[in-house]
Design a protein around this nucleic acid. Structure first.
Lengths: 319, 319
DNA sequence: TTGTAAGCGTTATCAG
DNA sequence: CTGATAACGCTTACAA
């Protein structure tokens, strides 16, 4: 079996509690013994047993990320950033693509220190049974939740988009997004467009993307274009939707203005100039990690709390 | 703190070992006591402590998946299938998108039962230090590795693709794939096309996709098409590459035959008829899980072993 | 059928 | 500075 503290202790002729201290660089051990012990540990390929550690210290230095919809590019970027931010904060990130309750339960059993959920509405809500026992933070749109959520102001984003298009002189705005869904983020975007355009007294049209993925959009928009035509001012509900729409717009490049929701670096590699409005993934990641680790380290109980993040508009030149 | 076996024992007026047994449905406990204990455990929201369990049993019933390149659709599908297969086999899957050695080391510390690596060549090779201590299985292309690898015969796939196009009467074959790479899978595909086409005395051309993602392909092929034109028989190196190529082929649908590598259900939703050649994700997943769990459960040492999987050709009608 | 007790690999407290 | 030792929550002989 694996090498334990005891094995090292025997090899070094010291007690295993000394080994424990030495490996943690405790000031209670001479430099000389420390060196000897560390060398031996390295040589014997000692791997600490997290189960034993966590049993006594109640810490695993591991955070679980719940990410059921693993196939959207924008979220991929966010996950990568969260991994990076957690690492910097001294935590390891373990992802589950299983259903949220299963994943969270297992994270609890594994005695992870905290949980991050990519919230998508009801489906991803964690029960009290779980959230009473482990610090949780969600990323999504503000809704009634007994744990904190990072709230990206999709409404704010949409308003900025509309304002920009008005300023550019467009008479009608086409919003392309997922229209038939229970995902609050999508609902907020759609409804904001509706309300705000009415308020600003500008014509608008809601065009269904048929889903959130590039492929769904590509197909749905293809059908749409058989009988209709897109106006010049276009707002796309997400990066993936934008990609699906762009599929059909190659030759129209300069005639239209596209404002896309999301804020990820991939926009920079798009073959036409484009505006995007969103909160940069790094910033979301940082915020998630900051709040979660604070709650862990001060072992604060989960409670309803909304952390607001405001999208900004960016222009990406033609590549 | 969390509820423990002891807490339940006290509430029920029994010893905690009885509780332990009852919750595992041991035949050594009366049905009546079992019922009482189980009800109490439920009521008190007992969550077993995996650290304690794993400390004594040396089992965590958790498998780590190492998946550094989280952004390719074909792999997403495989990951989902692996999760499903592991679940069925009684294991929980925890994913790391961190670098392979970091991820594997942490999996070891967490005393996971095994590790699956999506192998991509040197970068994803795990050192002996790790593989000597935990069952590992890789998914990729056969190469010298001290642990088992599921080997998908990319060469076989390419040969079938070429045969099909020859049979269909094409005089020249265009292979579109990542040409400049160290990823063995891509190299094998490219080189097989080269050799096999020469052998069959048919003209061929290697067209660079500029990467493995849809976006890279889309852009590179756009440039390509400014000066060149694609022949009628096309082989694409992957699903994502296919999507990037299709971007430019909308109106040519019926005139060309495309054979794409990979075998995932997404091909079914493509807007033109297409052939795909590959091993279905379910089958790869099943094979990975079968071999890994066998090695875990018989605690067999890792050793060089290549498990061959042969791609099959499939036709997907126009959607 | 139930209870007792040893032990899994650590950390942390307290004596030496 | 170093070494015993209790404790973490659980499983599993073995004893009652």
């Amino acid at each position: 079996m694996a090498v334990t503290l005891k094995d090292i202790a025997i090899e070094c002729g010291v007690s295993y509690s000394t080994v424990s201290k030495a490996l943690k660089d405790s000031p209670l051990v001479t430099e000389a013994t420390k060196r000897k012990i560390k060398a031996k540990a390295e040589e014997m390929n000692y791997i600490p047993n997290n189960s034993a550690r966590s049993l006594v210290s109640n810490k695993s230095h591991t955070i679980g990320l719940i990410w059921p919809a693993v196939d959207r590019v924008a979220i991929t970027t966010l996950a990568t950033q969260v991994n990076k931010a957690l690492k910097q904060a001294g935590y390891f990130m373990a992802v589950s693509i299983d259903n949220p309750v299963t994943a969270a339960s297992k994270f609890l059993e594994l005695r992870f220190d905290g949980v991050i959920v990519f919230d998508e509405g009801e489906y991803t809500t964690l029960p009290d049974k779980i959230t009473n026992n482990i610090p949780v933070i969600a990323y999504g749109v503000a809704r009634k939740l007994p744990y904190p959520i990072i709230n990206v102001h999709h409404d704010w984003a949409m308003k900025q988009a509309v304002d920009l298009l008005i300023e550019k002189g467009y008479q009608t705005i086409d919003y392309i997004g997922e229209l038939h869904t229970k995902d609050i983020r999508q609902i907020v975007k759609k409804e904001t467009i509706e309300k705000y355009c009415k308020e600003k007294q500008i014509n608008f049209r809601l065009v269904d993307s048929g889903g959130l993925t590039e492929m769904a959009t590509k197909q749905t928009i293809k059908e749409f274009l058989k009988t209709e035509t897109l106006h010049g001012g276009i707002i796309c509900g997400s990066y993936d939707i934008t990609m699906g729409v762009l599929h059909h717009l190659d030759d129209l490049e300069t005639k239209k203005t596209i404002v896309a929701y999301d804020n990820i670096k991939q926009f920079k590699s798009i073959e036409m100039p484009i505006y995007s409005v969103g909160v940069p993934a790094e910033q979301i990641a940082e915020s998630l990690v900051k709040h979660l680790t604070r709650n862990i380290e001060t072992d604060r109980k989960n409670k309803r709390e909304v952390i607001d993040l405001f999208p900004t508009l960016q222009y990406h030149e033609k590549k």
